[in-house]
Design a protein around this nucleic acid. Structure first.
Lengths: 147, 147
DNA sequence: CGCCACTCATTGATATGTCAACCAACTCAG
DNA sequence: CTGAGTTGGTTGACATATCAATGAGTGGCG
């Protein structure tokens, strides 16, 4: 009984930590005058890092649903941070590229994001982070039907 | 070079694990023929366990926004799992109570939820769970502006 | 009593998550 | 070449997250 109570608390802590971090990071972006969401930032950075990805590959990279990626890319395009051109060899796809403004956002947010992570992990040792990552990955595997 | 690639960021593993768990648990509920979401279940169980809570207290208990709790309670009411009556001493509040159907959902889902957590944490020791919880709580504190 | 500040709750707007339906383009077996 | 199946992408419907504004009730206090 007490054992399942402990596990119960674990997923509460997971939700709590993630929500607190997202709120924290979002507030920092807003304070810096950057008008994008955390999720938009993740998608933008993924496209910046890996050119010539399909939207589905972007979604896999940021652990997002493909439908969500479609909508986030539309928002980034509307905000002038991203452009889509027809793909030269595959008519189904679009070629994604950051605009000058998009590149500027990357350069502005990058140090903020690193500082956010530093503050969020303050007082937590590298070996604890490594263990945390390992346990989280194990949870993901345990819950993922593809194995 | 500091961690900058998204794949290396700890919070990715956090998002990944939580989303995988939620999808997993939701699929289990659906497979059992229970037509409620994970979040609705959390709210329902919280109200079941602690009578006479305000909606804000419910929201705090499940780490949810008050606006979300309002809407979730409306859905639970529409599904006939919950009833609201005027509160005897405070006209702003409602008295929340599970219906017979709501109680039945609690009894059905309880063992499923426990089994979900057991499977998600398969192969992860109790001491690792405890450490994980401590680290997550530290992250929450680090990100929470109220300190 | 009547004003005011505070609390509880609801609602709107926008963004995202999830599932499902759908379309268009590509691929490949026959 | 053609038709079936696959892949990339979009959209709709519904649920939730967040922020902001508002409504409504309560309690204190002059």
């Amino acid at each position: 009984m007490a054992e399942s109570r402990l596990q119960d608390v674990l997923f509460y802590s997971l939700e709590s930590a993630l929500k607190a971090y997202r709120r924290f990071a979002q507030a920092r972006l807003h304070a810096a005058g950057i008008d994008i969401t955390i999720d938009q930032w993740l998608v933008l950075k993924t496209i910046h890092e890996s050119a010539d990805l399909t939207l589905q590959q972007v979604g896999t990279a940021v652990f997002k649903d493909f439908a969500s990626v479609t909508r986030i890319v539309q928002l980034l395009e509307r905000k002038g941070l991203l452009v889509r051109k027809p793909h030269p060899s595959d008519g189904r796809r679009s070629e994604l590229a950051l605009t000058v403004a998009g590149e500027a956002v990357i350069r502005t947010v990058e140090p903020i994001a690193q500082d956010n992570r530093r503050q969020a992990l303050d007082g937590i040792g590298a070996e604890q982070v490594a263990l945390l990552r390992a346990v989280l990955n194990r949870i993901t595997e345990n819950c993922d039907p593809r194995d």
